[in-house]
Design a protein around this nucleic acid. Sequence first.
DNA 1: TTCAATGCTTGCATATTGCAAGCAATCGAC
DNA 2: GTCGATTGCTTGCAATATGCAAGCATTGAA
Lengths: 167, 167
Amino acid sequence: MPHAAPADPPALQLSRWLPYRLFIVAARIARPLQSYYGERFELSQPAWRILATIAERAEASASEIAHACALDAFSVSRGIAQLVQRGYAVRGRARADRRRAAVSITAAGRQVFDDIARLGRAIEDALLAEVDAAQRAVLDTLLQRLDAASAQIEAGGWPALLPQAGR
Amino acid sequence: MPHAAPADPPALQLSRWLPYRLFIVAARIARPLQSYYGERFELSQPAWRILATIAERAEASASEIAHACALDAFSVSRGIAQLVQRGYAVRGRARADRRRAAVSITAAGRQVFDDIARLGRAIEDALLAEVDAAQRAVLDTLLQRLDAASAQIEAGGWPALLPQAGR
DNA sequence: TTCAATGCTTGCATATTGCAAGCAATCGAC
DNA sequence: GTCGATTGCTTGCAATATGCAAGCATTGAA
């Protein structure tokens, strides 16, 4: 009898492929939220994330924000500028190291944040409406795993995933 | 004793907010893949999705593709143009209705698809490496739920989520 | 004191995107 | 049939976003 040939991997099917499925859900959720804060408060996606970040801190430097929001330094800088221009944040200087910014939210900014957060919670509620407690717990665990794994994937880049280095 | 005040909703915390968590994972996964097919085959994200879609069909019209890839008609048109230019797809006309395109993958296109799909599977494997069978099953169920819910969310837009219509 | 490194910002050149307008083929009403 | 509306797709242009080089101010190290 012949040697067992290495089994052909199943063809990749877009609609069943985990990264695509995640992406679609994420994109569909983002749209209504984005149109909300875009039309209503003229905020970009980076600006909204930054607003959410400074809403939970007294002060934040640009690099702290960049880390918390998964944004690069350029986007953070521009996002902060947008928030400052609209009166939703103020720039200061950190006492210790005066290169660092010390960005904080204003009262107006907090109002805007609360408004958008209401929609944010509504979206989350709608997503989880028919998901029971047990499943929610699994979801949380899974997201932790996916978060850790995706961080590694990004850090390594594609060469780490195709050790044979492709032809 | 005073009436029970409606409990304040917990403040929205970006890092614990489901849409953000999904988005981060999706974005981090997309990056290495995108840099792979971008650098290697000069494909845009729409073009890669279209390639994956026509890889599983004999022929597809632009609108079929748009539906399968969650892309608008413009992006599909441009994506197809890119694939045709690179020799990965050919445009024809559908026999029945000659307005419709009949796009199909070429041999070269299939080779490229197989190559990228290898990385795609590697990414999926890396994501699920430490997720056991039971959890994978739950993940699948959850994604179906999230998919359905997100479709509704997108269809309704934000007004459907904030019935009181915001001040 | 000097020079490199850090933190952030700005400007510019380059994609991406969204939308109006277009063309060709088909369908429906007459 | 034939005329106008509709559908399917494409193109061009304007607005937008993104990536990157270069800049400034501050700090730290030698």
